[in-house]
Amino acid sequence: MALINTKIKPFQATAYKNGEFIEVSDTDLQGKWSIFFFYPADFTFVCPTELGDVADHYDELQKRDVEVYSVSTDTHFTHKAWHDSSETIGKIKYTMIGDPTGTITRNFDVMRESMGLADRATFVVDPDGIIQAMEITAEGIGRDAEDLLRKVKAAQYVAANPGQVCPAAWKEGEATLAPSLDLVGKI
């Protein structure tokens, strides 16, 4: 699980987005911030609450030049059927990648091999394809898109401000730190 500060592996997949099937690859991510939002399966229970929460924050993520890619080992056809039948999933505007071979899920090291399902995992990827943040939770623990947005803001701030770091619970506009000998033992 030593994926922080590593480049994502190449991939190609078919996805569902805005009523169409599209092809997506790692080259589509170049030059943009990305979120990979892995979840176990369509037509389940915690998953739609999480995907809906991300959908509620998608416009704000887009304003920050961040693209969202939800990923499960379901097919793009299943994503369309779920999108068409669920009010919560129907509001999703971001890309829903089908990964029935598990290639992308394994690339991010979040495959539950005995089940053929993805873990509940989130990755924030910078415009160079480098993983800057990740979160993995147990099956029954849903993630919070508000905290994900906070992490994106912190990652973007650090990228734009070399020599600065964001302390715990940092919110946009709050003070940051400039690590130096003067701070050692004073925080």
Rank of each mutant, 00 (worst) to 15 (best):
L29M: 12
F123R: 01
A154C: 05
L29W: 02
L148P: 08
D147P: 00
E20N: 13
A169D: 11
D99M: 08
D128I: 05
Y69I: 06
P167C: 07
E87L: 11
R106P: 01
H83N: 09
T103Y: 05
T78H: 01
V124N: 03
T176K: 09
A154S: 13
V54I: 15
T49M: 13
R106Q: 14
T105K: 03
T49S: 14
T95K: 11
D128Y: 04
S114E: 13
V158L: 01
A121T: 15
P40R: 02
Q132W: 00
Y16Q: 04
P10R: 12
Q62V: 13
V152K: 04
P179R: 01
A160C: 05
V110P: 04
D42T: 01
D119H: 12
C166L: 08
T49G: 14
A13E: 09
T73W: 07
A55L: 04
I131H: 05
D147Y: 10
G140K: 08
I35Q: 06
A2G: 15
K93D: 11
F108A: 03
W33V: 01
G140A: 11
H76E: 14
V24M: 03
A160E: 14
D126L: 07
D182R: 05
A81C: 00
V184Q: 06
D56H: 10
G185I: 05
Q12H: 12
L3V: 10
Y69N: 03
A133D: 07
T137G: 04
K63D: 15
G98A: 09
M1K: 10
E60A: 13
E87W: 08
V66I: 12
F11E: 07
G90V: 12
F77P: 05
T95F: 09
G98S: 08
G98L: 12
L177W: 02
F43V: 02
I4C: 06
E113G: 03
R150Y: 06
I89Y: 07
T6V: 08
E135K: 13
K7C: 06
E135T: 13
V68L: 11
I97H: 10
D53R: 01
A15V: 09
Q12I: 02
T73Q: 07
F11C: 05
D28T: 04
R150Q: 12
F45V: 00
R64D: 12
I136Q: 10
L3R: 07
V24Q: 02
V124D: 01
D182T: 05
P100L: 10
I35S: 06
Q156P: 04
D99N: 03
I8S: 00
S86R: 08
F77C: 01
E67V: 15
T27C: 00
A155C: 14
G173E: 11
E135S: 07
Y39E: 06
V125D: 01
A154Q: 02
A81S: 10
G98T: 11
L177S: 02
P167L: 07
K151S: 04
T49R: 14
Y157F: 15
A15Q: 08
H79N: 11
D26C: 02
A81Q: 02
D28Y: 00
D74S: 09
P167D: 05
D84K: 07
S72M: 07
V46C: 04
N161P: 03
K17Y: 02
D74P: 03
Y69A: 06
S85W: 05
G163A: 05
H83Y: 10
T122E: 09
E139Q: 12
C47Q: 00
K171E: 15
I89L: 09
K91D: 12
